[in-house]
Amino acid sequence: MIEAFQLGFMQRALITGILIACLCALFSVFVVLKRLSFIGVGISHSAFGGVALGFLLGIDPTITAIIFSGAVALLIGFINRQGRLHEDTAIGIFFSLTMALGIVFIGLSRRYNVDLFGYLFGNILAVTGGDLLLVVILSPIVFVLILSLFKELLFLSFDEEVAQVSGVAVSPVYYLFLLAMAVTIVIAIKLIGIVLVSALLVLPAATARQLTDHYRGLVFYSVATGVVSTVLGLFLSYQLDLASGATIVLFAGALFFTSLFIARLREIR
């Protein structure tokens, strides 16, 4: 295992993987508590439109995807807060529209880029030095942002109405959260892929929820689950030549079912 991680691309993948896993695990706490798992799916799939636009215009697809997904995340949040459409309807509309736009952009660019598969399914080889730099710069910012909004996010996940009445700035906090989640999803796409990245926003906290009754434990177990499944998933995907994203997600899934089993054992006792 140590041998594998001596390779340059594996080191890049490992560092980005661990940082992204920590971030996704932190978001997953609120995704699970506030029942936002479908938003994760919506934002990640809308990134496809952004990636395709990057290919079409010849700009770094990560940058166009961040702008694209960020806008979609804010739009979904806005529509939801207006109360005219249900959140799941808004997500269903935007994620299919942005996917459709993506397919049109790819067609217009007239080159079926191999890189595209890396974005769809994740590829550890695709993590460049530039990506690593982006993750190293962005993740501390996102991390500090979410930790400093933690108590407000906790309150609005528990009881949004009372949070608003008691004077918590519910809307700005929620929009910042969605924006930070969009950025995290886009930088996670290189490793996990558009199709599966939303799993990393659900599985860690869902696993942790089986093991603890307190939110502090939830954060701890969630981050632990995310990091363990990323490191082991990366290693195994390299050894067996499998898609890195799928292997990481399958590992996280295995940990989830183990946690269900542990919770059941505790109940029986």
């Binding site: 407000e152 528990f158 009881d159 009372v162 009445v165 008691s166 918590v168 906090v173």
Partner: peptide, 30 residues
Amino acid sequence: YVPQRAFADLSFPVSVFDVVLMGRYSKIGL
């Protein structure tokens, strides 16, 4: 404000102390 009880998710992983502390969050500030 004490809303109708049905709105809050009671499987939420917080202690009684945590819930009451939430009432002071706006005073504590961002």
